[in-house]
Design a protein around this nucleic acid. Structure first.
Length: 520
RNA sequence: UGCCCCGUCGUCUAGCGGCCCAGGUCACAGCCCUUUCACGGCUGCGACACGGGUUCAAAUCCCGUCGGGGUCACCA
């Protein structure tokens, strides 16, 4: 079976997480059946900087590894793939519809239509346009134009019977034609509307399966009407439920960001992103830099595989236990039939769990490569890191282990990179571990001397040194470990102390110990 | 308002008449591990919206109620 699917974003400047999921389903479905996935651009609104507004969207898909066979940038045999370039084609389709009696010129003024509609609503009666200003003959049209009216083109919808179609997710659908209005398909200025353009494009691009969000379900009958009117065989349909807000069933939208921030989990992920962004000098507007926008995840250092895997499982499941899918497995196992028919709420905490998993799978060298750009942007490492720099970063990545949940988390270890006299202290930790325990100062001073005398400074040697120290002083390890960590990193938490000391090296450990002792 | 869609733990879901007094994930709580943090291990908490049918048997089928959502543009 030949399968061709499409995703048609408008150039808005950002890629919405719900849109990505829809695109992902389209992509997987097409590729699974050996077909093509097309990326078409819905820029009928013709705003000025299409290229600029499109770039982040295309970039997002590329980052996620969702590639398209035809469409923007790559072209293809069924172009143009930009709706703004097909105006004549749409107008021709409109003419065909008129010629066949499926559409008509209409000269009603907006207020006149409004009045009719309100009258119907007041009487609680199903509204249908009276077609009073319909211009069927040239004479009628001329007459209306003489009155200074400008015509649009409307669909002449049936008012009896029903439209039946099959939906791959919802099953048999039937909507009575009487529910439909005489929708406008061409504006007074001659430009064409979505319903018309979409049907024409799907036909021109030989789309076989229209997989889209359920808010388009109600557009389907009129699109089928247009398709048939034009002599096209309508495609197959699959309306996937929209992605809902965190903790709600409302459609996710970037507009309600303020409200999502009241959700503690969402806020946490958002704040984490802000922290990372601030350190790498990224200028962020909450509008376009938040967990609803895909770009956010790239900037914070998430893995594309984690984002895609999470999105795959948002409204779809293979069985009762499989959670992790490689790209190959996704392609092999995806099916429309298993898409859940109820809306699924977006839970960025769960996305984080996938991120944790994929990050843990990553070899140290790959993590090091992933993390380095963040250090560079934060000016903690030179733009051309030396071999020694890389080795140091690698050692930190290794020691940090599972604590690095996103690439941006490397910035939690910035104290390894700052100059000794620039080290910032967590005052609470400093108080608790160094000032409060009466013996802390003396112990730290003694440890400093031991460190100064150390011949080797690797983790194993340091572990032995610490244990000998503890035995000699007749104290518990905990009595010195925390104090030393605060002294040397400024923080109360971090990875293993032996690794910490080793990475810093003897000189810096001594310098930092001295500085801490001086503050006591 | 009309039309349409949806309704299993807080979340994502498994379930398509008996395997289910409902299984898994995330989250949460407790315990264990442990130099802090994180990881990991174990345990716990926790749902078939409600009411009628059909059936020997219903989360699964039918009807109704309630609830949630979508859509009714010269937006896409």
């Amino acid at each position: 079976m030949l399968v061709r699917t499409r995703f048609a974003p408008s150039p808005t400047g950002y890629l919405h997480i719900g849109g990505v999921r829809t695109a992902l389903f389209n992509y997987l479905f097409a590729r699974k059946h050996g077909g093509q996935f097309i990326l078409r651009i819905d820029d009928t609104d013709a705003n000025r900087n299409v290229a600029e507004a499109l770039a982040p969207i295309l970039h997002g898909f590329k980052w996620l590894g969702i590639t398209w066979d035809e469409g923007a940038e790559v072209g293809g045999p069924h172009g143009p793939y930009y709706q703004s370039q097909k105006l004549e084609r749409y107008r021709a389709a409109v003419q065909t519809l008129i010629a066949k009696g499926f559409a008509y010129h209409d000269y009603a003024r907006p207020e006149e239509v409004k009045t009719e509609r309100e009258a119907a609503e007041a009487e609680k009666r199903l509204y249908h346009y009276s077609r009073k200003w319909m211009g069927e003959t040239d004479a009628q049209r001329k007459h209306f134009e003489m009155e200074g009216r400008r015509g649009v083109v409307r669909l002449r919808m049936p008012r009896e019977g029903s439209c039946k179609f099959n939906d791959h997710i919802r099953g048999a659908m039937e909507v009575s034609w009487a529910q439909e209005q005489d929708h406008v398909i061409q504006r007074a200025d001659g430009s064409c509307l979505y319903n018309l353009a979409s049907v024409v494009d799907d036909h021109d691009m030989q789309i076989t399966h229209v997989i889209r969000a359920e808010e388009h379900l109600s557009n389907t009958p009129r699109q089928i009407f247009i398709a048939r009117g034009l002599g096209y065989e309508p495609p197959e349909y699959a309306h996937v439920p929209f992605v809902a807000e965190p903790g709600s069933k409302k459609k996710l939208s970037k507009r309600n960001l303020a409200q999502y921030l009241k959700n503690p989990d969402f806020k946490k992920v958002f704040d984490h992103g802000q922290t990372v962004a601030a350190q790498v000098g990224l200028k962020t507007a909450a509008e376009t830099f938040n967990p609803v926008i895909v770009d956010f995840y790239e900037q914070v250092g998430y893995l594309p595989d984690a984002v895609v895997n999470y999105l795959l499982l948002l409204g779809w499941a293979l069985d009762d236990k499989t959670e992790f899918f490689t790209r190959a497995e996704m392609l092999a196992k995806f099916s429309l039939e298993k898409v859940n028919s109820a809306a699924a709420s977006f839970d960025c905490k769960k996305l984080s769990a996938f991120q944790d998993h994929y990050m843990q799978q990553l070899p140290v060298d790959e993590k090091t490569a992933l993390v380095t750009p963040f250090l560079r942007k934060a000016a903690l490492v030179p733009s051309e890191p030396s071999a020694a720099d890389t080795a140091k970063v690698r050692a930190i990545v290794q020691a940090a282990g599972d604590r690095l949940k996103t690439a941006g988390d490397i910035l939690d270890y910035r104290d390894f990179f700052v100059a000794d006299d620039q080290l910032a202290y967590d005052e609470k930790a400093f108080e608790k571990r160094l000032r409060k325990p009466p013996e802390a100062r003396a112990l730290l001073a003694k440890l400093r001397e031991r460190l100064a005398a150390a011949e080797t400074f690797d983790p194993a040697a340091l572990e032995k040194l610490l244990h000998d120290f503890v035995a000699a002083e007749k104290i518990e390890l905990g009595q010195i470990v925390h104090a030393a960590r605060v002294a040397v990193t400024g923080k109360g938490v971090g990875f293993g102390l032996f690794e910490t000391l080793a990475i810093l090296g003897k000189e810096r450990c001594l310098a930092r110990s001295d500085r801490a002792l001086a503050r006591l």
